[in-house]
Design a protein around this nucleic acid. Sequence first.
DNA 1: CAGTGGTCTAGACCACCAC
DNA 2: TGGTGGTCTAGACCACTGC
Lengths: 254, 254
Amino acid sequence: MPIETPRSQYRQVADLIRAAIDSKEFGLGDPLPPEQDLAGRYGVSRHTVNRAVQILRSEGLVRVERGKGTIVREIPVIRRDAMSRYNQSTRERQGARGAFDAEITALGMTPRAEVTVERIPASAAVAEGLRLTEGEPVIRRMRHMYANDVPVQLAPSYIPASIADGTPLAEQDSGPGGIVSRFADLGHRQVRITESIRIRRADAVEQAFLQLEDEQPVIEIWHTGWTADDRPVEVCVHVAPAHLWILDYDWSIS
Amino acid sequence: MPIETPRSQYRQVADLIRAAIDSKEFGLGDPLPPEQDLAGRYGVSRHTVNRAVQILRSEGLVRVERGKGTIVREIPVIRRDAMSRYNQSTRERQGARGAFDAEITALGMTPRAEVTVERIPASAAVAEGLRLTEGEPVIRRMRHMYANDVPVQLAPSYIPASIADGTPLAEQDSGPGGIVSRFADLGHRQVRITESIRIRRADAVEQAFLQLEDEQPVIEIWHTGWTADDRPVEVCVHVAPAHLWILDYDWSIS
DNA sequence: CAGTGGTCTAGACCACCAC
DNA sequence: TGGTGGTCTAGACCACTGC
């Protein structure tokens, strides 16, 4: 009998399932046994197993497909190097691929991004980030990003329409070196980056795309690019499952 | 009847309680009504209310005191500016106070930190971070940090004993300007910082100190200070409730 | 002792999926 | 139609708190 009383059963069951995954008894990409079976196996009610599975879901270890079963997730942790993504030499080395592609390729996976460009009124938050008035037109470059066809990040980028209209910034394919290079071409060279990171619950849209569980936290990186005259010209909001990413920063001090 | 079927009741109840907190009906620092009462009020079973409360706990909005009740948390979000914490002029301006003190004071709260210094063998992770062998002696400066006497961060710092032994780095009070200044005094000036950020579940020790719920995520910042000859001389592991902090980074690009 | 939340079971009904 | 997980209720017992 593996279940002992001092610790809650559902937590112990979660540990047991986690161990079974680690030991490959439940393989990556495979479904777990039905909750009813697990209940019998561990000598608890299905409700208790269900609760254990909730923990594993909130950790991002498994994903539920309604009516089918509970699947062990396969995506490993992705590292994002904030600084090197944006410096000139890295951009040149990466060519048209961009930082995200490099990060995913480094893990031996196949990256894919879908870009949708729209001209929309700025939300209050975006307006504040770009120092505009709410409702002013902005170009939104919405990116849906995948690794091995698994959604791993949602990253809408916002640019004042006054800058982007009629330029490659408003095109789906922004050309070699990514959009940071286009800003430079247009006389809006970004010289400074700020990023604010916070953890929050996913909203409904994010949950749907990222295949997230309800209680699963996401990382939100609010990225702003500034020109030499201290004007914000681009805001990019990276949203990704919190369990999936490690963020790296690296800088010199004086 | 506020409860509708398409969305799960416990989520709706969580929303209702959240709204009641926002509208000050349930004040900061006050206990919520008993779950039995809330069950009657919203027309659901206590189990469903309990589940709703779990959500609020995982968001860090409330905290349960066993046998007493469920209390609305009072600590607002704390911003941590990674770059300015470590540059010379900021350190001088802050004097003996240090970055953490400044961050908490900025919110109108009273900071407090308890420092415990110990000489211990390096764990595998710390050894790797400091480029030592597992088991080599290191000085651990464990910091328990509070805002208005509420625990908000656990931040052990590790320094090779070969550097810290017999120096102020191994003293409880490391003197003006914080330990970064002491490293400089000792000829180990830190010129580069790396930080790796990830989100994970809290371990038992962290849960206890940070008054965390089981499923509540923490931010772990693995901070390393490097000398000009590219040697890691200090590793600091900041662990804090994920909901409590916003991390700011700010840098120039070329 | 009464009040609080923590947890568990049994049983039920639902929505969604595959056959 | 049967299998899967999602959710809810009723009822119960426990541990911890404060009187």
